[in-house]
Amino acid sequence: MDVHAFDEEGRSVIGQKGELVCATPFPSQPVGFWNDPAGEKYRSAYFDRFPGVWCHGDFVEITERGSVIIYGRSDATLNPGGVRIGTAEIYRAVEPLAEIADSLVVGRDQDGDVQIVLFVKLAAGCELSASLAARIRQAIRAAASPRHVPAQILAVPDIPYTVSGKKVEIAVKRALQGLPVTNRNALANPEALRYFEQLRLDASTET
């Protein structure tokens, strides 16, 4: 597979984050989409971002050794201070902590910038104390960078997932913004989203 990381201008980059693309045909490309005789849905799903080059929306880095680091879905990347950050960078720092059962991160648009808001589901018997919040921030700063440190950390009862086990960052972001979440049936635990819909980010639960 002719895999590259493309920067914004469609240049193949090594050692930098970019869009995962495939630049040469491969036989397991879909035959197409069902009910899409002209192929328009298919084209817009994979070929709109870079003409003639397959791009399905993963945010990655290809290292000099030829290995690939996956940072998360492209449409869920966070842009604090204009630097693109993949959500997986935050998860891999936070989730090893014993007190954290699960987590989800989104960007909140604020005064022309993006602030990172981290939601944590706590392990049984744990609470989000000031010292735990400090350790979370420290873990993120150490494993990722100071730019990755969330502006807000909030405890939530559950993290919503799709039926195929993916965190639904985009649905949560829409719910927080009061926008409709179009297809709740895709969620394994749609009730988990209700909490986010009711949540106001400036509420007193902030830590």
């Binding site: 491969f26 397991s28 197409g32 069902w34 849905k41 985009i170 895709a186």
Partner: peptide, 16 residues
């Protein structure tokens, strides 16, 4: 996954 609309039906070929 269908989180942003109706799920897209992706058709895969036998040989590929």
């Amino acid at each position: 996954s269908g989180t942003t609309g109706a799920p897209k039906c992706i058709v895969h070929g036998a040989g590929g």
